[in-house]
Design a protein around this nucleic acid. Structure first.
Lengths: 258, 258
DNA sequence: CGACATGTTGAACCTCATCAACCGACGTGG
DNA sequence: CCACGTCGGTTGATGAGGTTCAACATGTCG
């Protein structure tokens, strides 16, 4: 784990590339090229509103393992690329990942002065971030944005509660299978021809065994053992330690215990 | 467990007491007398807005153990009295409580056609409920209401994530202590002189051992054993099985593991 | 009174954590 | 270039914490 690097506004200013301030009502060039333009919270904004955002937005690269925000510091950002883990920790160091965020998720705890958890880059991460004050002004100004973030939050709450069921009631085997199943479902169809209807998936695990353990409430040894068990059972295949092939997603779902 | 009783609008009409429809801009009498008037979501409403709500609100009593809403059915309500548990279940019956709601919490998953979990009365419950369509109209009309529910949801998400840490990483002892500590903190000062600053609490557990177990991801036997262990350690005292005395809240918090 | 629900306690078992050794890949410095 | 440390991962042996199964106690309600 590296030293926390807070994304305060000075650093963003220094690190980011300032975007051109257009005066026409056209879509800003940066946003036009943005990979998550139509999926992130930006989807609910008009071109005019997007220009407002564009003026305060900063691109930011965060290397894997680096802390994005500790407690008492808030970052607002769209995740463009990579995986962010939200963690909570006990006094003696026991750790639990309480949320995983992928593009085009929005990162940040609004309506609070501090986040109750840590946000850390699980892989190299690319952010489109906003300073707190500017973002909160936008939030007041564009009601569609608040509504969108509200629905995001409701979905996150549903996901958190489903994860509580996993943490409280599932066996180690089911936990590992559930996580792989979850990732397999949302794996993008890269490198291999398969769609959402296909009963086949291949993906690169964005997490170490230790991260998997922290997400599932297990030890990394148990995770490793369960993965080899799934492998010998033929439920999954491993190319690399990280490259996972799921020949039969339905079978994986069955092992995941519902 | 009893047969599910859905709170659809017909039944509410039949079961509830229709409130008088005032034409003045005064506070409706029912709301004036309401115990949660200034704490529930109603706190953000003007007297005029409250009258609108009053027109569609229905009081409803739900006996302990009865299901308030199953998946695919949504109920919107303020909890006036009692405790509501939100549960998720695995195919083979393993169950997990994913949320506990006390007065003056708001019950209901907005912006969705169905709830992903069950809502069940843990004790006798008194609700002030609203039909779905009417409530959604109000939600559009009163922006303060949406904002208030948004903040509620954010708090619930924080609580859910803190609970994930408990479920994934705490020992049985710490889990039980954490739950007692949580209830001790929010216990109302009834029957005994103690404020939020007092290092002493007494309360009546609103849950059975089985419910505690389902909330903590344990078995009821383990919960029972840990409670007697806390008792013999002098951390808590039991009057009745349900009546709990915490002579030293700080000590309880220490056992809860942070 | 018997039936039932809630809770406690005991004994045996089993899953998973713990501690430890080991492996291959990678980067670095002598 | 190779020795070395580090990091991510696998595998093994052992045991503790919790589950499971079972008996029993208590209180309530018909």
């Amino acid at each position: 784990m590296t030293v926390p690097v807070l994304l305060n506004e000075d650093m963003l200013e220094e690190a980011g590339t300032r975007m051109e301030n257009q005066t026409t009502s056209q879509l800003p060039a940066k946003c036009d090229a943005c990979v998550v333009r139509h999926k992130a919270i930006c989807a609910v904004l008009t071109n005019d509103e997007l220009r407002g955002f564009n003026r305060i937005a900063r691109q930011r690269l965060v290397p894997a393992g680096q802390v994005i925000a500790v407690e008492s510091e808030i970052v607002f950002a769209n995740i463009m690329e990579g995986v962010v883990k939200l963690t909570e920790t006990l006094a003696d160091g026991r750790q639990q990942i309480v949320g995983l965020q992928f593009p085009p998720d929005f990162l940040g705890r609004i309506y609070a002065r501090e986040t109750p958890y840590f946000a850390e880059a699980a892989t190299d991460v690319e952010l489109c971030s906003f300073p707190r004050v500017g973002f909160e002004t936008m939030l007041e100004r564009y009601p569609g944005l608040q509504r969108r973030l509200f629905e995001n939050t409701l979905d996150e709450l549903d996901a958190a509660r489903e994860w509580m069921l996993l943490l409280g009631r599932k066996t180690a085997q089911e936990k590992v299978a559930s996580l792989l199943f979850m990732i397999a479902k949302r794996a993008p169809s890269v490198g291999c021809a398969h769609g959402p209807d296909m009963n086949f998936a291949t993906f690169s695990l964005p997490l170490t065994r230790a991260d998997l353990a922290d997400y599932l409430g297990l030890t990394l040894e148990t995770v490793s053992r369960q993965i080899t068990k799934l492998k010998t059972a033929g439920i999954i295949e491993l190319a690399d330690n990280r490259e996972i092939i799921v020949p039969d997603i339905d079978a994986l779902e069955k092992v995941s215990g519902a």
